[in-house]
Design a protein around this nucleic acid. Structure first.
Lengths: 236, 236
DNA sequence: TTATGTGAAGTCGTTCACAGCC
DNA sequence: GGCTGTGAACGACTTCACATAA
């Protein structure tokens, strides 16, 4: 599967999927699942790409990094392609997720049905606020609905170890995010999704993805403003 | 400010800021504000870039699209640079935001302090659920804390008109997102932030940004899985 | 001397256009 | 004939390295 180049880490052949492609695979996967639920069995790159909001050329190029899963002159078998994308994404096996911070955002994540259906299991909830600790939330685990009790922040390390969680979600205020992050990493977590509006400092080998709600709005505002300028200019 | 090239739309000179740069400006801005609050008056590209998680070369290149706001041999004046970035982003003037869907996610947005501090004002809340309609939430408007009452989905168009909102946030379940989107666009909204896991179909001229929480997790899972393979390979 | 600002080089991603296969 | 899969051309972004200015 992988060949060594003699120096540095072994470099995979045929597995070097560009980041931009990886970022789109989940969308392809989601749309394929919805097509499957609608009873569609075969789909062309043109039709599928349109539903995903990308060009058909980009879609085919993306798939070419995974393999040849289509049939020329026909299109793609929906379930066959779904399987291969989900395999590539690793959503075949379930990933354990620990959520730190059970405020409104944490609750939104817990109640988000999309998680379980895409191979994620919330296996732990932690909060520092005494009022929240002890509260229970419904979450699904291996298909069954279970009640998850919020545990105190102090239990973070133990819980990660007990649940063998692989992914940590930081849904705390900004000022405690770095501390929580350090403790997640110390517990062995190497994949972190950060909602706090701070740049987290981590050791190499740990991957952090961030979602900053205000940043997205600011990008929208930038374009909105620019549109205003353009309109002014065209009125001249 | 803009020159016409004879055919097509006029192309701006000196204003063609790359998307990748625009996406980073909010981060620079946020870090600058925090430096300012810490009493720092001058900062080098090296130091600032480190705090933003980017290379200093990238940072300087980004700034070069805005203008020359530094001093060679010295660095950048924090407040001067903050001003110019916020001006470019349009966060000098406040933007009106309407939130559709007041579930846990909508509430998380309402309670998110970062919005108001970065030039956004939540001016309207809409929900379709009778239990939620009529509830009040504290939001800040022009510095003052006001109570915002959730109005029924039917009032969406009227509310957008009344409040002159420029940005719409869709925090509804996936199945009503497209309908809400169409109504926002019909009301005159041209900037939409979509949290529902669907690809929205909009007319050209409308900008949609999407945040899909599960997609971010899936990208993490992809890399986590690949790490597993790599480890396996190195054990051979 | 120090740190910015920026052409030039290099890398990455997208689009094109068509060969290859059904 | 139709649609996939993909080299090649193109464009966007990043990194480099240094001229430039305080």
């Amino acid at each position: 599967m992988s060949i060594s180049l003699g120096k540095g880490r072994p470099r995979e052949i045929g597995r070097g999927i560009p980041d931009a492609t990886v970022a789109r695979l989940p969308v392809y996967h989601r749309v394929l699942v919805s097509l499957s639920e609608a009873g569609v069995q075969t789909v062309s790159s043109e039709a599928l790409a349109a539903k995903c909001g990308v060009s058909s050329a980009k879609f085919r190029k993306d798939l070419s990094y995974l393999g040849s899963y289509g049939t020329r002159g026909v299109g793609y078998d929906v379930s066959y392609l779904t399987y291969h994308i989900s395999r590539e994404l690793g959503s075949a096996q379930p990933w354990g997720v620990v959520i730190v911070g059970v405020g409104n955002l944490g609750r939104a994540l817990i109640s988000y049905r999309g998680f379980t259906s895409r191979g994620f299991e919330i296996v732990g909830l932690v909060d520092s606020h005494p009022d929240v600790v002890g509260e229970s939330f419904a979450a699904s685990e291996r298909g069954n609905v279970v009640q998850l009790r919020v545990r105190p922040l102090a239990d973070l390390e133990v819980m990660v170890a007990d649940t063998k969680a692989q992914i940590g979600v930081i849904a705390t205020p900004a000022d405690c995010a770095q501390g929580v992050c350090d403790r997640l990493v110390a517990s062995g977590i190497r994949s972190i999704l950060n909602f706090a509006p701070v740049v987290l400092d981590v050791l190499p080998g740990v991957e952090v993805r961030k979602v900053d709600l205000a940043v997205e709005l600011q990008i929208l505002a930038f374009h909105e403003q620019r549109r205003g300028y353009d309109q002014e200019a065209s009125n001249a």
